[in-house]
Amino acid sequence: MNAPTTSASPPSLRLHLIVLAALLALLLTSAGCALLPLGVFNTLSALGISVIKTLLVMAFFMRLRRGPPLLRIAAAVGFAWLAVLIGMTVADVLTRVVLPSPW
């Protein structure tokens, strides 16, 4: 009964503020990139920055970086299912050729 509920001491105030500053900087970067004519890289940079922001939130605010492995697996599995959902949908849409009607 003596086991504490904390597995580790919580992250420092400084770390929280650094992560917040990084998130806001990434937000401005993605807004800036959207205004530049980069073609397909507009979408890629926007989504890439979103992925980085998500990883920051999950690793530091949701504390998966030092979290129990079971929770990290559960979190990863959620996103793995999401990748299957979107990946397979897109694979179908992008590879399908519209056939003209023969008559």
């Binding site: 004519p37 507009n42 926007a46």
Partner: peptide
Amino acid sequence: IFVYPLIYLVGRA
């Protein structure tokens, strides 16, 4: 975080 680029940032350039 994902809604933002998909809704607000398309076709801005």
